[in-house]
């Protein structure tokens, strides 16, 4: 069989251990697939979505209720986006819990982290595009956090929001960021990230002499496995989307008027909980950035795992990184639960 275009995106053969699902969890590949789903469904939505405060929520209702299969496409876009955040988290956890960030993969680890942040931002901007009463907390309180940043806060707010308060220019700017800037950055950095995986010798394994399993699989087998993962993920996504509608609400009429359901998007619930403690800059900006910096600096300041311990879960030599990530994850989950349980 002659390798086709898709086969040529892969190396001729890779070590069998690199493609084992129980080692990689398939997270990176699933993220790529989800991005493709998002690009396709997002492009379909663009035919109907109107990025103006008066029309945004109305056009989303049109997509959801009146366009044939529009509701399914929107649900797919929504759930793929949420799954992308989850899969990215899983990917990050896998890399840390297997110590795969060790040199020469240190730089790619940081690239991946930036990709994660970009995927959060593209999710957040997409969330704002709904412009319905369900997103008002994020639109008002969330964006106000920008103002609390010393020195540059007010100017940065003006640039991102396009005025002294959210309005038509905010929506069009978030639209441009969502469909254009962040999407291109995500695609570009994603390609670079994937390129670096190959350049760094594929998925982290011990040096050839220390490998338990010397077996290799061909690119044909690899593409088959990837296709299988895509089909199964796609089927699960379709079933989920058919039965679970994405959140929707009536259009915002008064931007500053907060409704009773003033929740942050789910991945920021922990930040919203911390904001109850007081200073918005400290808890809303510094604390999340600190968490991110700690995670980013793991390969640079924490003990790196031994080469011989690569390719397996929870190597002893990077326990500190595992403990720190577990502790951070525990705090974030706890804060999220506290927020969900508290009155809005």
């Amino acid at each position: 069989m002659r390798p086709n275009f898709f086969h040529h995106l892969h190396p001729p053969t890779i070590p069998a251990a690199q493609s084992r699902w129980r080692y990689t969890l398939g997270a990176g590949g699933t993220a790529v697939f989800l991005m493709l789903v998002l690009a396709l469904t997002g492009a379909l939505e663009m035919f109907f979505y109107i990025p103006t405060p008066e029309q945004a929520a109305v056009s989303i209702q049109t997509i959801t209720y009146l366009v044939p299969f529009g509701g399914l496409v929107r649900n797919l876009h929504f759930w793929a986006a949420q799954l992308l955040v989850i899969v990215s988290m899983v990917h990050l956890a896998r890399v840390i819990f297997t110590g795969a960030y060790t040199p020469p993969r240190r730089f790619n680890y940081v690239l991946g982290l930036i990709l994660f942040i970009v995927s959060i931002f593209i999710n957040f901007t997409g969330y704002i595009l709904r412009w319905d009463t369900g997103i008002q907390w994020a639109l008002v309180v969330g964006t106000n956090l920008i103002k609390t940043i010393p020195i540059i806060g007010n100017d940065l707010y003006g640039i991102l929001i396009g005025g002294s308060e959210p309005g038509p220019s905010t929506l069009i700017r978030f639209y441009a960021w969502h469909i254009f800037v962040l999407a291109i950055v995500l695609a570009g950095l994603g390609a670079w990230h994937a390129f670096r995986v190959r350049r760094d010798g594929g998925i982290a394994l011990p040096p050839p002499g220390l490998r338990a399993d010397p077996g290799r699989i061909s690119r044909f087998e690899l593409v088959r496995r990837e296709t299988l993962a895509m089909i199964l993920t796609g089927a699960a996504l379709i079933v989920f989307s058919a039965f679970s509608p994405a959140p929707i609400g009536p259009a915002i009429t008064e931007v500053r008027l907060l409704t009773t359901d003033s929740r942050a998007p789910w991945f920021f619930l922990w930040v919203q909980q911390m904001l109850k403690w007081g200073d918005p800059f400290l808890w809303g900006v510094l604390a999340p950035v600190t968490v991110l910096m700690v995670v980013a600096l793991i390969p640079y300041f924490f003990p790196n795992p031994k080469q011989s311990e690569l390719g397996q879960w929870f190597p002893k030599s990077n326990r500190l990184a595992q403990v720190v990530l577990t502790a951070l994850a525990f705090c974030i989950v706890l804060l999220t639960i506290l927020n969900i349980q508290s009155a809005p």
């Binding site: 299969f69 509701g71 399914l72 089909i231 796609g234 089927a235 379709i238 079933v239 989307s241 058919a242």
Partner: peptide, 14 residues
């Protein structure tokens, strides 16, 4: 087959 099934399910729901 599962993918086809999920698509028909989505079609049925719609």
């Amino acid at each position: 087959g599962l993918l086809l099934l999920s698509l028909s399910l989505a079609w049925w729901v719609a």
